[in-house]
């Protein structure tokens, strides 16, 4: 039986189509589910992906309004049951706003971290560039990143992606939830711009809950699902592979972002 993943469409989501393509490429079933469908209809899915976009126009804060919809209560229930829940970009902002990430083993809904406007010297927050991700100290606890070794290049494109913690206790526990960190092309983690493009604490790009089944990831792996999407100028092994491809056939093979989608597929097989 193919595992089925619900891709949640909120008003203003805009990465549904490419997210579905990446899930299908990983051998998963993927269906777009609208925010206003019966919340219980979500219970039947094996995993959930909240795609990128500008849900509710980023009103109040990015993700803040979608985080308060009834469907998020269903997601919280399913997350507690261990179902994988993955937010990418605006989806990550929704997970953080809802408290699903970092999550709280005590069960309170206290917000432990937030995604603040990017901090880039002298310029407005919104920024887009290719970044390199490496496993963080918490990678082995997270089902999306367990066993990951090589640096994964993929694009980021956001204005509010700087992970900040609410208090010292959360700051201390952030490393163990840090699944993916920004790095230099050779894989060394790097907090300085432009390698960390937004001023994020600990170079955090992807933060998971304590159980490791919920991941809030700011960069876009679905935009790196085929080699063709990797830019010709990119440094590192993936750039070399891209430069060696001179036909569409050679370039329509899997790209670096698929590593994370396959990890999801493996987790759903068990």
């Amino acid at each position: 039986m193919t595992a089925r993943v619900a891709v949640l469409k909120f008003p203003g989501s805009n990465c549904e189509a490419e997210s579905v393509r990446a899930l299908v490429r990983a051998g998963l079933g993927a269906e777009v589910v609208r925010w206003n469908e019966r919340p219980e209809s979500l219970l039947e899915y094996d995993a959930y992906l909240l795609p990128g976009g500008f849900s509710y126009q980023d009103r109040v804060r990015a993700g803040a309004i979608a985080a308060r919809l009834p469907v998020l209560e269903v997601l919280a229930t399913r997350a507690r049951e261990g179902a994988p829940v993955w937010g990418i970009c605006n989806g990550a902002q929704i997970l953080v706003e809802s408290g699903l990430v970092p999550g709280d083993p005590g069960g309170s809904e206290a917000i432990g971290i937030a995604l603040a406007p990017n901090r880039i010297a002298d310029r407005d927050p919104y920024y887009t560039r290719w970044v390199y991700l490496v496993p963080g100290p918490g990678a082995e606890r997270c089902l999306f990143t367990r066993g990951l070794t090589e640096p994964l290049p993929m694009p980021m494109a956001h204005g509010e992606g700087r992970f900040v913690t609410a208090d010292a206790a959360m700051a201390r526990s952030l490393p163990e939830r840090l699944a993916l960190a920004y790095a230099r092309p050779d894989g060394r983690p790097e907090t300085a711009f432009p390698w960390t493009p937004n001023g994020s604490a600990l170079a955090a790009a992807g933060v998971a809950n304590a159980a490791g089944n919920v991941l809030a990831l700011m960069p876009h792996p679905e935009r790196a699902q085929v080699l063709a999407q990797v830019p010709e100028w990119l440094e590192g092994a993936w750039g070399d592979r891209r430069r060696r491809g001179h036909t569409a056939e050679a370039l329509e093979v899997e790209g670096p972002g698929m590593v994370l989608f396959h990890a999801l597929a493996r987790a759903l097989q068990r």
Partner: peptide
């Protein structure tokens, strides 16, 4: 400032 990658 422009997103060139959306839609993939």
């Amino acid at each position: 400032f422009y997103d060139a990658e959306v839609q993939g």
